[in-house]
């Protein structure tokens, strides 16, 4: 009888670990966790071949809830730990889960360099614009004037744009979505399929310390007026009635009404996910400045991965110099015999 060679088909449930989930009820992390589990199953990933690495913060509990290999490391350092995992075994599918404090404050440096090196990591940054685990201080993405326990008179710091930073750091895949948005799985899926470092910012509701921070992107009556769903090669159209668009005027985006003053769809800005300058421009459009915020894939450009190039250097060195021989190594340099 022929052996059953068919691989078992895994479902989202198979990616759930046996651990009780300890996020606050109603936290946006639950929705993201469910979508990630589904995407892992859809992409046909294996549990043993997958590693989730995190730092510290609410989002960084994520690995405990995935029935894969997992490393809950230290604050801000997940990209560095994950880079080491990838160097040691490039065949593993490695995901990093981080937050706005973990990834942009204490770990900002590692994020930049993991992206710059194009290590084949999928980095999911849960942005809730607040420090949740330490109970409510402002974060690097909190808006100016934000009143928190550590900024009772309002934050005097400008927030950072995670996507602008990622693009400037030479990320080869940059995308954004929202914890409860219908497009989140598609965005995660595309990140998962990207060959290179993929950076995904996910707006996430902290219902305890920063509830409804992203309501403008989730409220079913208003959200379509506040976001633009990016599609490669398509014009930037948004609005509940899909009657508004973005046009470039003197190198700056402006909101226009389609049909008004003879404006046609062809006059609008068209999305090109291969164009990093456009991606940067899109990353600067913010709700606080009156713009709809783009969602989806901003930029993607496959490039050689760090761990593959490193492995290739090793292979090339072996090819040109032969497999390293200990005796030859010890006996290299000027040697001499003492009789």
């Amino acid at each position: 009888m022929p052996a059953n060679t068919e691989l078992p088909v895994l479902t989202a449930k198979d990616f759930a670990s046996d651990q009780d989930i300890r996020w606050c009820p109603g936290c946006g992390d639950y929705a993201i966790l469910n979508q990630v589990r589904k995407v892992m199953a859809k992409l046909g990933r294996t549990r043993e071949g997958t590693v989730f690495v995190s730092g510290i913060g609410c989002s960084s509990r994520f690995p405990y809830y995935m029935n894969t290999y997992g490393f809950h490391s230290i604050h801000g350092r997940a990209p560095a730990v994950a880079t080491g995992v990838k160097i040691a075994n490039p065949a593993l599918d490695v995901w990093v889960v981080t937050g706005d404090g973990d990834g942009l404050s204490i770990g900002g440096n590692h994020l930049i360099h993991a992206l710059r090196r194009n290590v084949n990591l999928k980095i999911l940054l849960f942005n809730n614009r607040i420090y949740g685990l330490t109970k409510g201080q402002y974060s690097p993405t909190s808006e100016e004037g934000k009143k928190t326990k550590s900024s009772p008179m309002g934050s005097i710091e400008l927030p950072i744009s995670p996507l602008s930073l990622a693009i400037a750091a030479e990320a080869s895949f940059v995308a954004r979505s929202v914890d409860v948005d219908k497009d989140l799985p598609a965005v995660i899926e595309r990140a998962g399929m990207h060959n290179g470092s993929a950076f995904v910012e996910i707006y996430q509701d902290c219902n305890i310390f920063n509830h409804k921070a992203f309501e403008y992107t989730t409220d079913k009556d208003t959200k379509e007026d506040n976001i633009i769903r990016l599609e490669h090669g398509k014009p930037l159209i948004f609005g509940k009635n899909r009657d508004k668009g973005i046009r470039l005027h003197e190198h700056k985006p402006e909101i226009v009404k389609i049909g008004e003053g003879g404006i046609k769809e062809d006059d609008l800005l068209f999305h090109d996910e291969k164009d990093d300058s456009l991606a940067f421009l899109l990353s600067r459009m913010s709700h606080s400045d009156g713009f709809p915020e783009p969602m989806g894939v901003f930029y993607t450009a496959p490039d050689d991965c760090y761990e593959d190039l490193l492995a290739k250097q090793v292979a090339d060195a072996i090819k040109s110099r032969g497999e390293g021989d200990l005796e030859a190594l010890f006996n290299s340099g000027e040697t001499y015999e003492v009789a």
């Binding site: 590693v51 490393f71 490391s73 730990v81 080491g84 995992v85 160097i87 072996i318 497999e323």
Partner: peptide
Amino acid sequence: KNFGVKTMQAEDEIAAVCAAIGASFA
């Protein structure tokens, strides 16, 4: 490198030790 050695010049001291830990984990 012909001994199969992989070296990583990390962005800082912390990244260096963390990457080494990641490699050992793997």
